[in-house]
Design a protein around this nucleic acid. Structure first.
Lengths: 123, 123, 123, 123
DNA sequence: GTGGTCTAGACCACA
DNA sequence: GTGGTCTAGACCACT
């Protein structure tokens, strides 16, 4: 997982999506132990508070679970349990962006093309 | 155009996309005069400075022109003159967001569907 | 002389340079009578106050002279009487602009080329 | 960098060109951290909002990046990626100014001289 | 500590 | 009347 130090996206959000990505890709499996807050902070050269914040959010989203004195673990990946609120939020932001590029002169086909080629590359 | 006072999206950004949308939909035409800063502020019950900020951003994006002492006008939308740099930036941000929702469990079809229905609504 | 209604340059300044331009090109000769404030305002569809302001500035710069009850006339074109203050101001603004395009990646040669071709075209 | 409090040029614009100049001269290097908004405000005895405004413009021009909670940094100056649109705009404004000084009695040689000596000074 | 947003209110230039 | 600049001061999000 890479943290982009010059991105306008907050570190803690980058951490969150990074961890989710790792789970999605299978790099992190159910029951796997995550690095401790301090370790993770060292790895990415960031403030432990920032890592802590990310873990708290992930816990509130039922993605990980923290056991006092033992550490933090990946929860069973309940795929059916989509966070619709989160999705809705992202959907709106995405449509805003579509609006933006449309205004810049990009047509629907072109956008769909971007997405298609993105998913092809990912395979 | 509606300003959502409880949204986390700043007022001035809401104004910006609202105005762009109005132009895109043809509600605002080239050369049309926008409400004055003070009027717009009154309409949406916000501070003139906030409106001014939105207008300035739109001007820097070549969407409107503002002439001191006279007002603010919609600029000709020079679609042939695509700002590839700007498009590239937005394209990247868009793909980041796609990545994001993908990890939230959304499939490619679903995303393509969102976009399709967005463009259908516009017609 | 053309007044650009959507330029960010104030009308009265456009008028001033327009008149100076006409004098420089010989369209307006020494002792020629300028249109009255009201006429000029009608011609360019602007407020008489705006024309009046331009005339006042030109008068203070010794370019024209107003005779009460008779009208406004072009003064003897005293070429040696360069308005150094005005030139200095423009010189600074020009260098600021050079700084700007330099920052955008334009080299000295290219800029000198622009200017050269500008003067060639004018001949 | 000096801010001229009596100049008609707005503070924030003076700041913008001052910072660009520092970058161009190498005083500020890629990835360097700029003084914080509040520090910069203190240094030049101005309101933090004014500094903030300058930083925002510079960010929209891709000159700096600002990361919430961390500060503002000089971006890599991607010279190969010339923004032709922006250059075109400045070129027109520059030629307008040339026209202006020409009517004030300045000759082509003199203008070319200004530019030449500007670049010589920079070395 | 960092920057971002918003308000309120003053003063100026232009039409 | 229009927009532009600047200040002072409040509150919020992120590190």
């Amino acid at each position: 997982m890479q943290i982009n130090k010059t991105s306008s996206k907050p570190f803690y959000e980058q951490l969150i999506s990074g961890i989710k990505e790792d789970i999605f890709k299978g790099i992190l499996q159910t029951e796997d132990k995550l690095p401790s807050v301090r370790e993770m902070a060292k790895i990415h050269e960031m403030n432990p508070n920032t890592v802590s914040k990310a873990y708290k959010v992930l816990e509130s989203q039922d993605v990980i679970v923290t056991v006092k004195g033992r550490g933090t673990y990946v929860k069973a990946n309940n795929e059916s349990n989509r966070d619709e609120r989160q999705i809705q939020k992202n959907r709106e932001a995405l449509l805003d962006m579509i609006k933006e590029v449309t205004y810049l002169g990009v047509q629907e086909d072109e956008i769909q093309g971007w997405i298609k080629s993105y998913f092809e590359k990912e395979d």
